[in-house]
């Protein structure tokens, strides 16, 4: 490639775990770096640039300043990629949206609350156009690599839109429900190679929901496995609080 794509990486409200997992590509990091110029990345370097071919953005938007910055990043980026559940869906941050914002602010910042303006947590797509998602908490590394390769090759990226159950069955795991646990796999977007259930854990839904989830059905299933209905919806809200606002009748 004559001109390497100029890549920038930004973070908003989140734990920065997605960025850390980018640094964690032990086998592929050099191959990745060979194909792009990283022009901005607070986590790993100090350079600053004005325009980006690809901006990877981690974290949810939760302050007025975030909104300003994301507009700025969007304006300067040809392709904007949301990295991880906070950026894609609002993530666990959005749980705060379930409570009155003033209560949340008082609880977190106490008497200094007026120094910290805060907003309900938003996914990037609530404010700007997002071209691609890399889901997961932290982001799914394999999905990042697939998207990255597609972008460098100049082809479209098809986001997976099937349940975690699909890969879980391909891996011939015993169903989590069979072991008396509950699992959000049936309505959670796959693409993670069911990495939690492969190791005996249940799916907590970190990759967000499939495009047309049967939420009432999922809540019923959870309830039939012993959860109270309220608890069932709370489980679904862990990573999907933003998307589920106003969904439950």
């Amino acid at each position: 490639m004559a001109n390497k794509p100029r890549v920038a990486i930004f973070d908003f409200t989140g734990c920065e775990g997605c960025e850390l997992s980018q640094l964690n590509f032990e086998d592929q990091l050099l191959d990745i770096l060979a194909q792009v110029d990283i022009v901005e990345w607070r986590e790993a370097m100090d350079d600053r640039a004005d325009e980006y071919d690809i901006a990877f953005v981690e974290g949810a938007l939760s302050t007025p300043d975030c909104i300003k910055r994301i507009h700025d990043i969007r304006r300067r980026s040809k392709v904007l990629v949301a990295l991880g559940s906070c950026a894609v869906d609002g993530g666990v941050n959005a749980i705060k949206n379930l409570h009155p914002i003033e209560e949340v602010r008082a609880e977190v910042y106490g008497k200094d609350q007026y120094l910290f303006p805060t907003l309900p947590a938003l996914p990037l797509s609530a404010v700007v156009k997002v071209d691609h998602n890399v889901r997961g908490c932290p982001m799914t590394q394999g999905e990042f690599l697939r998207l990255f390769t597609a972008l460098v090759m100049g082809k479209q990226f098809a986001e997976p839109d099937q349940s975690v159950c699909v890969e879980c069955k391909l891996n011939e795991n015993e169903c989590v429900f069979e072991r008396g646990m509950i699992c959000l796999g049936p309505v959670t977007r796959g693409g993670c190679n069911s990495q939690c259930t492969n190791f005996g854990q249940y799916c907590i839904g970190c990759r967000g929901l499939v495009s047309e989830p049967n939420l009432a059905g999922m809540a019923e299933t959870l309830a039939s496995h012993g959860l109270a209905m309220d608890e069932a919806w709370k489980r679904l809200q862990l990573y999907n609080a933003y998307r589920l606002q106003g969904v439950r009748a």
Binding site: D31, I32, F148, T149, S163, P186, P213
Partner: peptide
């Protein structure tokens, strides 16, 4: 009630449908 998770297909011994997708190495 169906969650459209696909489990019934994937555990079925006579289901044979398959999908095909290209994977590209990071080196491109």
């Amino acid at each position: 009630s169906c969650l459209s998770c696909g489990t019934c297909n994937l555990v079925c011994p006579t289901c044979y449908c398959f999908n095909v997708e290209d994977q590209v190495a990071v080196t491109g």
